[in-house]
Design a protein around this nucleic acid. Sequence first.
DNA 1: GACTGCATGTTGACGACTTTAACATTCGCC
DNA 2: GGCGAATGTTAAAGTCGTCAACATGCAGTC
Lengths: 199, 199
Amino acid sequence: MQSGPRTPRERTTYHHGALREALLDGAREMLAERGVEGFSLSALARRLGVSTAAPYRHFADRDALLDALCVEGYALFGAALERAGRTADDPRALLHALGVAYLTFAREHPAVFGVMFAERGDAVIDAGAPTFEPLVDAVVAAQDVGALPAGTDPRVLSRTIWASLHGLAVLSRQRGFVKLRIDDDDEALVRDALALLLR
Amino acid sequence: MQSGPRTPRERTTYHHGALREALLDGAREMLAERGVEGFSLSALARRLGVSTAAPYRHFADRDALLDALCVEGYALFGAALERAGRTADDPRALLHALGVAYLTFAREHPAVFGVMFAERGDAVIDAGAPTFEPLVDAVVAAQDVGALPAGTDPRVLSRTIWASLHGLAVLSRQRGFVKLRIDDDDEALVRDALALLLR
DNA sequence: GACTGCATGTTGACGACTTTAACATTCGCC
DNA sequence: GGCGAATGTTAAAGTCGTCAACATGCAGTC
């Protein structure tokens, strides 16, 4: 009756007891260890000491499990952004904190981050919607103090800043900046980007 | 002795004659039609009317074929950027043209673009290096006319602008901006971004 | 407390995929 | 003309995703 095991673990009970959570936990681990390409439902079931058909009692298919992980990821991501935002008072510092949190999340959960922003169903996209609200709020605050042009649609500004952060996250995650022969940390990446974006 | 067929095509000769090119062409098509997930070496071989083992005479494995496609893609991408750059004289117009070309390439070759910037080997990353030189050159030119701060390392500026464009490309490609309820075209995305980045 | 239904697991199988080893054919060169 | 290397084929192993048929046990009812 114990909960999700982490290594190929033999069960005494016929029912696992908490397979759904164990699948999510295990999938998260396997994703972190092997990446999306190396993620296999069969291997996951094996690791949990359960038959390869068992996961289908909890998820329609492999993609549904990944979708669930995405939704979970968006919640984590949104929480991280919101937490980071609370420490800052100045709108510039706020945007900086959000940016660093953005890159940090991408660096700490590279596989989940990758899956979250890969081609997924509409349900996943909808789940992601609230995640980025802190960013829009911060942009509006920055407009109020003149750090961003007041006359422009805040959604347009948010989109640009979001894209900049996202691009930094994606490119640094896959060592894209190696091509420019600079290898700065998240802090510097965000600082330099905001130096250009804000006034 | 004819070259690569596009549909399951029967051959009269034992040797295909141009299997390597046919594989690359076919892979490009299949990638465009079905995306990376839907890309299968077996299906490709079948479509070319060749055994499933045949591709292994030309590529070490599935990934090697995709790598080759990436290298090809970088060349195409770089050429597109360079071509777009030639039409503009003003550095601001130059950056704008490069940006639009960036988004256009991502939109027209979404699958290849995705593979190019997915986690790939070092060889692929090296192959991508020259692709982004036009961008660095344009940044320097923009510094000269005061559109970008002159005192800053151009590589740092390039990195920021590159990330912005890349983020725009990635997020608009996967409908990320749906969350902000705006659905502009590439032109508008780039214009708004550069309005913030340049002075 | 036995009965029963539903959630949850297992078994076994199918078809597709990647990859390899062993064998066949042909091209190009001496 | 002959021969080796390049390029195909066949057959197989091993993995994976998925499903149908069957087994088990938990929960609630009489």
